[in-house]
Design a protein around this nucleic acid. Structure first.
Length: 553
DNA sequence: TCTAGAAAAGGCGGGTATGC
DNA sequence: GCATACCCGCCTTTTCTAGA
């Protein structure tokens, strides 16, 4: 019996310490393995650049012709028979690379963080330097594969997305992006650098399937539901369509494919195949060509695209058309893309909390709220004050910029071991007009002095409540808030800090309202925000509509 | 029925060959 | 000189199969 008690106690202690250790170690490994991969890639790119530069220099100095590249290729291959990359063509790429970029540009614009193949694509397909750097930045940030990059260039994403961004930040990209994974395949990289792909979100897909089925049925007129996982046999192979409808007015079949992840080009190829199969196997004389609808999750939510078979186009992606500009007769009969996206976003919001809030301080050097908003961010909570005197110098300027973009604004005070009421007065004075501002008290370890005590935190909360009629959010981890579960403080909504998969609540609080699930390095993804980079991200425990109501309540 | 291992399929970037 | 197609090796995911 005694042994059991001792064992349980030990398990509890080891469990807590072990969990913290594991989280710390995971973050360290994730960061460092990616840094290692980037370093290897960077060296390779710089080696190629150096080679190209030296070839150029000597051709200029000594009047060497093109023949020297052939000779160099042969000699380098003889000297390094185990190494690839010294073909004539690749040496020419290196020379062109050296012509196009200076070493400074490579380092400053982080061109060396892109795989060699990506740089070749960008170099040859794009002439404008600003545009090149824009695609390089986007490739890094989004982890585009080479095929995706080519597709984005073909569809002129640069022009579609508006003006380019030229102030690049030297931020780490997501360590589990496709790009990172492929970078790690470099044969020079050690085994411990290997990464796994994100698991498929089957549950989400099922939920989407279930919902869209009801949604389209409710939309009603014209839609005849034929089946879910509709079976088609092509030659000796079986295929299953997520959803199949027949539209009575349009007199055509409508195939719906649902993808839980982000869009991939192969989805369109698959859809085209399904449309062909449906037309061949099901379509009757008098029926119009079938229509496809692809629903997938993007960074900003659920996105819908209509696909129409269009055999007038040549090959590949153009064999069908993905378009928001449906022909008028179809547009009037089908739900619009906006309707579909709005409906599915509503479902999405219910399934997962709303992940639209970042918290910032002066430590974030560069912030572009316009880009952040485009990336789906709706609210910003910024550090305003600390202790009795400190004011975050970026606070006022960023509040103005944020509000100009129509973002919800919040302010937090970093509590220290000083008079709570005085800290609250300093905080509210700095915040200024707080009528539309979410207010929060940050309770965590103060490495530069005394920690705030529960009594001081209560005084702070009481003063804020007296002045504003509202209780501020209490920010903190389950571990640190252990001693703060007083009747007054637990009245305050909890802004939980837990960089992990599950929101573990501190004693005294029954629920969380905001959950800071990542510091930009550890915890579940996403870690980054467009225009900000890796940062603290937060989920709201409710829908977007509820968030707006809560913000100033 | 579940699990573990093997095999197959497919995607990726690096690199080369070829044609204009 | 340049653009493109294609091959290769590596890796992950999916599917299949055998055994507990």
């Amino acid at each position: 019996m005694i042994k059991i008690v001792e064992r349980n106690t030990m398990t509890k202690i080891i469990g807590k310490e072990y969990t913290e250790f594991l989280e710390q170690l995971k973050g360290y490994i994730a960061t460092n393995r990616y840094k290692a991969a980037l370093a290897v890639n960077s060296k390779l790119i710089l080696l190629y650049h150096y080679t190209g530069t030296e070839i150029l220099k000597r051709q200029k100095e000594y009047g060497w012709g093109a023949k020297v590249i052939e000779q160099l290729s042969k000699d380098l291959r003889d000297a390094f028979p185990d190494m690839k990359g010294f073909s004539i063509q690749n040496l020419k790429y290196m020379r062109r690379f050296a012509e196009e970029y200076s070493e400074n540009e490579i380092r400053q614009q982080a061109v060396d963080q892109l795989p060699w193949g990506h740089n070749i694509v960008i170099m040859y397909e794009i002439k404008n330097k600003e545009e090149r750097l824009w695609y390089a930045k986007k490739s890094r940030e989004h982890g585009w594969s080479r095929n995706i990059l080519s597709m984005q260039i073909e569809t002129n994403l640069y022009k579609r997305e508006g003006k380019a961004i030229t102030n690049f930040r030297n931020k780490l990209t997501s360590p589990q992006s496709d790009l990172a994974q492929q970078t790690l395949k470099n044969p020079y990289v050690f085994d411990f650098l290997s990464l796994g792909k994100k698991a498929h979100e089957r549950e989400v897909e099922k939920a989407l399937v279930a919902h869209i089925e009801r949604f389209l049925l409710e939309l009603g007129e014209g839609f005849a539901f034929l089946g879910r996982q509709y079976h088609l046999q092509v030659e000796d192979r079986d295929f299953y369509l997520d959803l199949l409808f027949y539209h009575v007015k349009l007199r055509c079949y409508i195939v719906i494919e649902l993808k839980a992840g982000k869009f991939k080009p192969e989805y369109t190829g698959k859809m085209n195949f399904y449309l062909s199969a449906v037309d061949d196997l099901l379509r009757q004389p008098g029926d119009n060509p079938s229509i496809g609808l692809i629903l997938y999750r993007s960074k900003v939510g659920v996105v819908a695209e209509y696909a129409l078979r269009d055999m007038n186009k040549p090959i590949g992606l153009a064999e069908y058309q993905i378009t928001e500009n449906l022909p008028e007769e179809i547009k009037t009969a089908l739900p619009t893309i906006e309707e579909l996206e709005a409906e599915l976003s509503r479902v999405s919001d219910k399934e997962e909390s709303v992940n639209v809030i970042v918290d910032l301080s002066h430590w974030e050097e560069s912030v572009d709220f316009k880009l952040a908003k485009e990336d789906g961010i709706q609210g910003v909570i910024h550090k305003a004050t600390q202790g009795l005197k400190y004011i975050d110098l970026t606070y006022a300027e960023r509040r103005k910029a944020s509000e100009e973009e129509g973002l919800m604004w919040g302010a937090y005070h970093f509590g220290v071991g000083e008079n709570g009421k005085d800290q609250a007065e300093h905080f509210l004075k700095t915040v200024g007009d707080y009528s539309q501002v979410l207010l929060a008290l940050d309770i965590e370890e103060n490495r530069n002095g005394k920690n705030i005590t529960p009594e001081q935190a209560e005084d702070f909360v009481a003063k804020v409540h007296e002045e504003t009629g509202r209780f501020p959010l209490i920010y903190g981890s389950a571990y640190f808030l252990e001693d703060f579960a007083t009747p007054t403080l637990t009245k305050c909504p909890l802004w939980l800090a837990k960089w992990g998969a599950e929101p573990t609540l501190p004693i005294g609080w029954r629920n969380w309202i905001l959950w800071q699930y990542t510091d930009g390095q550890t915890g579940p993804k996403p870690h980054e925000v467009e225009g900000i980079g890796a940062c603290d991200r937060n989920k709201f425990n409710g829908t977007l509509e509820e968030l707006r109501d809560f913000w100033i309540s």
